[in-house]
Design a protein around this nucleic acid. Structure first.
Length: 287
DNA sequence: AAGAGGCCCTGATAGC
DNA sequence: TGCTATCAGGGCCTCT
């Protein structure tokens, strides 16, 4: 569910609310996530002060003062809710697609700070928590990941070189975290539309110019999504009133059978399935 | 090595 | 109203 922009939005509010706060108590209500929450998880977190909340790709990284810390992946349906006990009924939903009301089912982890409760909720259980002891261990966790679109190492040379002899379609590569980190199914379609590239085009057939467009639009789309506060598919109102309206800007995602929004294009948006995931594109202007 | 496909889960929605 | 089928923003694992 959450792609890089959404996780970045979560990171920002999380960093704002729990930075420099001490974990007073950890409750594991249901350890069954993609990977079972380790029995040592509680002790690893207990009484530690959060030094910073960072993000790599779709992963949240919370680091303690002693350089140890933990990672959160939200999977498809993971949401984080912050509940302030200072003011009654004050909820901050740092996720982006369910209501600001605290969920009753599927709460897996509670982390209590002074005056703030962190609640991790995940109906589909595709998310997970993992811990690291130091910076080296943290770095190793992301060893096999490709660069983020914003990274300087994600350049035309890298892209065109990577695509040499690759038979797989371009859409799959945008979703392949070994090639580029942080893009998911929604933004893959949006990036390809802006780049005017057909999702089923083989990667090896992309020209250098097309690689350049992939580079530029990956950055633009994600940047704009972050500025808009990410995407929420469902009706969403949060008490801060600042989260998630990039979905209004979707040009192809969930717009099948509607007109192509490119000026002078008479095409209609199509929906096809690529590797069991839906893809949206205009078969008129995406070559 | 690269690529295809199954699978992990629950919940919302569409169609009958 | 209630059943069944399909779909959902991710990514790991296995097989060829």
């Amino acid at each position: 569910m959450p792609e890089l922009p959404e996780v970045e939005i979560v990171r920002q509010s999380l960093n704002q609310k729990v930075k420099d706060k001490i974990i007073q108590k950890v409750l594991v209500k249901n350890r069954n996530l993609r990977f079972k929450i380790h029995s040592k998880f509680k002790n690893h977190l207990n009484k530690k002060k959060i030094k910073k909340v960072e993000r790599f790709s779709k992963y949240l990284i919370l680091t303690f003062e002693n350089k140890a810390g933990f990672i959160i992946h939200l999977g498809m349906s993971g949401t984080i809710h912050l509940h302030s006990s200072n003011k009654k009924n004050f909820f901050t939903n740092t996720s982006f697609y369910n209501s600001p009301i605290l969920p009753k089912k599927h709460n897996h982890v509670e982390i209590h700070f002074d005056n703030i409760k962190f609640i991790y909720n995940d109906p589909r259980r595709f998310g997970y928590f993992s811990t690291f002891k130091n910076m080296i261990e943290l770095k190793n966790k992301f060893n096999h990941f490709g660069p983020e679109p914003f990274s300087s190492s994600f350049d035309v040379g890298y892209i065109s070189n990577y695509f040499k002899k690759k038979e797989k379609n371009i859409k799959n590569f945008l979703l392949d975290q070994k090639f580029v980190s942080g893009i998911g199914n929604i933004y893959a379609s949006e990036i390809l539309f802006d780049s005017k590239i057909n999702p089923i085009k083989k990667a090896k057939d992309l020209t250098k110019h097309e690689c350049k467009r992939i580079l530029i639009h990956s950055r633009l789309v994600l940047k704009k999504a972050i500025q808009k506060g990410g995407s929420s598919i469902r009706d969403f109102q949060n008490t801060n009133g600042k989260i998630g309206n990039f979905q209004k800007e979707f040009k192809v995602y969930k717009r099948e059978n509607l007109n192509c929004l490119k000026s002078n294009c008479k095409g209609t948006i199509k929906k096809i399935t690529i590797s069991n995931r839906s893809s949206f594109f205009c078969n008129y202007c995406q070559k």
